[in-house]
């Protein structure tokens, strides 16, 4: 079995030709089912995204929406010889990149930020209007809530990953997850409201909606 995998991988590599970059080859190999290719691909993409994210956060003034949405696209353009790729490869790339962006940004928040307590318990700081105004959730808490939601509905979490962390459009998300744009919008709407409730009310509802008391 192991041998076979290596073989497929090699074929993938050979198929790429000389001037196709390493990432492109790995991506093609992975799209064709080679999990080892994914293992090699992940750290490369991870490092590139992390570098770009760090650069973004250093240089961009907060509030500038300038290039942030394009980060994943830019990584794709930098790493992959996209002219030779089919869209399926692109979708694969976006899927992994969005997941990695979540990891990077949550790690960043964990490292730099404050681990919040269990939400707003009794002193009202009325977080809700602030969240609405700034739209900035606590990424660590968001990550936790997403993990909770994943147990109930993994696809909705993927949609949030693609759109919010990956910056993909509705159409791209639909393409990556192979579902319709309408389903993406619908998933997005439920997930967003649910997550918002978890992050603003937390304890008022008991532990995040897993069991109600």
């Amino acid at each position: 079995m192991k041998k076979l995998r290596v073989k497929i991988f090699r074929i993938g590599m050979r198929g790429c030709g000389r001037d196709t970059g390493e990432v492109s080859c790995l991506l093609i190999a992975w799209s064709e089912g080679d999990q080892a290719a994914l293992e090699r691909l992940t750290p490369i993409v991870y490092n590139e995204l992390r570098r770009m994210a760090a650069r973004y956060m250093r240089n961009e003034r907060p509030g500038h929406t300038l290039q942030s949405t394009a980060l994943v696209h830019e990584a794709y353009a930098r790493l992959v010889d996209y002219k030779r790729m089919q869209w399926q490869n692109r979708a694969h790339f976006f899927a992994i990149a969005a997941q990695l962006m979540r990891r990077i940004l949550v790690e960043h928040a964990r490292h730099h930020g404050v681990k919040r307590g269990a939400g707003i318990r009794h002193i009202s700081l009325d977080e809700a209007p602030m969240l609405a105004a700034r739209g900035d959730p606590d990424l660590v808490a968001l990550d936790d809530a997403m993990s909770d939601l994943a147990r109930l509905d993994p696809r909705k979490v993927q949609v949030v990953e693609m759109r919010y962390f990956g910056g993909l459009s509705v159409e791209e998300t639909a393409e990556v997850l192979k579902i319709s744009a309408i389903t993406v919008k619908r998933d997005w709407s439920t997930a967003r409201t649910w997550l918002y409730r978890e992050l603003t009310d937390g304890n008022a509802h008991g532990s995040p909606a897993m069991e109600t008391t």
């Binding site: 994210a53 973004y56 956060m57 961009e60 907060p62 509030g63 929406t65 942030s68 949405t69 980060l71 962006m101 979540r102 940004l105 960043h108 928040a109 969240l131 609405a132 105004a133 739209g135 900035d136 959730p137 990424l139 949030v160 759109r163 919010y164 962390f165 910056g167 967003r192 997550l195 918002y196």
Partner: peptide, 12 residues
């Protein structure tokens, strides 16, 4: 308005 921007902006 929640999650209206992108995570990286929030992180930044």
């Amino acid at each position: 308005g929640f999650l209206a921007g992108h995570a990286i902006e929030a992180a930044a």
